[in-house]
Simulated scan of single mutants.
Amino acid sequence: MKKSLRPEFSRQLMSLSACPECRGLATVNGLYGPRPCMACNVSGWVDAGTGEALPLEELVTQLSLRLQAAQQQIEQLNKPALMGPAAQYQQNNRRGAGGTNYTGD
């Protein structure tokens, strides 16, 4: 029998859109000032397919998945891309003795 993740633990990224009531701000202007938007559970996000607010458990999961993806993208953009002779010194080419870095010096 092949091992696999249980379906309740494998969450997929859903498509979300800005709430049409509050336009993604999580508050709407009321008679006595801003008030929380209940159409999106005060998150500013709704399901793009149905336009309904997500349950809080699902909302936390979806926002966490989006945050993790954004952090990975930021890390990739912050990595300096070395070019030329500097790249040879920073990366291991495994051409030296015992698989060490050989720079030719």
Rank of each mutant, 00 (worst) to 15 (best):
V42T: 06
E8Y: 08
G49V: 00
Q73F: 03
R35V: 10
E57C: 07
C37L: 12
R94M: 10
C19F: 01
P36S: 04
G33E: 05
R23A: 08
E52P: 03
M14S: 13
N78A: 14
T100I: 07
K79V: 12
R23W: 10
L13P: 08
A18C: 03
G99M: 04
E58K: 04
G44K: 07
M83R: 14
A81C: 11
A70M: 14
R11S: 08
R95K: 15
Q76R: 10
V42H: 07
L25Q: 13
C40T: 02
C22G: 05
D47A: 06
D105E: 13
L63A: 12
C40L: 02
G44S: 09
G104K: 07
P55H: 00
G98I: 04
C19A: 00
L63M: 15
N78S: 14
E21T: 03
Y32G: 06
E21Q: 05
L59W: 02
Q90L: 09
E58Q: 06
G30Q: 11
P80G: 13
R66Y: 03
I74S: 14
G44L: 07
E57F: 10
P55N: 00
L25G: 11
P36T: 04
K3N: 02
C37I: 13
S17E: 06
G51W: 04
G98F: 10
L54F: 05
F9V: 04
K3C: 01
L31T: 14
Q88K: 03
G30R: 08
